[in-house]
Amino acid sequence: MVHQNEHQHTQHIVGYGTYIMVWLALLMLTALTVTVAGMNFKNFAIVIAILIAGLKSILVMNYFMHLKFEPPIFRTMVYITVFTLAIIIGLTFTDISFR
C-alpha cells in the first residue's frame, strides 16, 4: 500500500534530452541495420537484423515506454510474455526443422 502511494500522482519524469538521445540512438541503429543488410553475411544476416531490432525494442520499452522506471512487476510480466512466445516458436520448429 505504501508502494501504491509513492506512485499515486505522477510518473517518474524523464528529461527531454534523454528522449532525444534515445531517438538518435534508434536512428543510428536503423542506419546500422540497413548497412549490415548490404554486406553479405548469408544466413547470419537475419540473425543480426533480429538482434538489432531487439536492441531497438529494448530502448523503446525502457525509455519511451518508461519500463525502466516502473515497479519490477512490469518487467517480470514482459519477460513472461517474451519467454512464452519464444517457447511457442521453439516448439513449432521441433516440427518444421525435422520434417
Binding site: 516448439l91 521441433t94 516440427d95 518444421i96 526443422s97 525435422f98 520434417r99
Partner: peptide, 18 residues
Amino acid sequence: GYLVWGHHMFTSGISDTS
C-alpha cells in the same frame, strides 16, 4: 499447458522428433 499442444496433432503429419 504451453508445451504440449502437439499431442493433438500426432496423426497430422508433424515430424517424428516433434
